[in-house]
Design a protein around this nucleic acid. Structure first.
Lengths: 98, 98
DNA sequence: CTGTATCCTTGACGATACTG
DNA sequence: CAGTATCGTCAAGGATACAG
């Protein structure tokens, strides 16, 4: 799906499952994502109705938070399945190296 | 993940959940996939250990079948979650158009 | 702090022709 | 039947500089 495809969308969504996050939290959480890519994905997912963007200040420094919408939460089963599988994969690799 | 990313890998895997399939079955099932793309994805997924390729004849016409490996089957939870979500999404769109 | 603008490279994918 | 080879196009993503 276009909703969760790409290299980063699923990762961003996982960060937002547990709680609202600020732009900088997302950026620091995914150290290797470029600002451009993060920004584009956030806008796309907002346009898709998966996340909600809220601005809390009018004058710099800005404070912006992103959170999942109800529609975004409907992806949780997929995201947790992905995350579980990824964890199992990592464990398997470690076991094989014993 | 690189394992199920791209436009087609998940679709191919879903075709293989229920049973072994021949190359032509896959090709006809996904009418809009190019031969090149199907072939590349099958080889990649075979290299990743997700599917197994078996040749049943030596002389043309060839008969080749693809099936999920045990590792490939470990993706089932993700694939079914994806498929359920896609179905729900389609239903929602229909309901909204009433 | 939260982005946007610009430039650039790579890779994904399609169309088509051809081979064992 | 089951692919491979070749060519072309477009979108995804990174790096960096700059803006509100």
């Amino acid at each position: 799906m276009s909703y969760i495809g790409g290299k980063w969308k699923a990762v961003i969504l996982m960060y937002l499952i547990s709680k609202k996050r600020r732009y900088s939290e997302l950026h620091q959480g995914m150290k290797t994502i470029s600002e451009r890519t993060l920004s584009l994905h956030l806008k796309e997912m907002e346009a898709d109705g998966l996340i909600k963007r809220t601005v809390y200040t009018t004058k710099p420094p800005l404070k912006v938070e992103y959170e999942l919408t109800e529609f975004g939460r409907s992806l949780e089963p997929i995201l947790t399945a992905l995350s579980n599988w990824g964890r199992d994969l990592a464990e398997t690799k470690n076991l094989e190296s014993i």
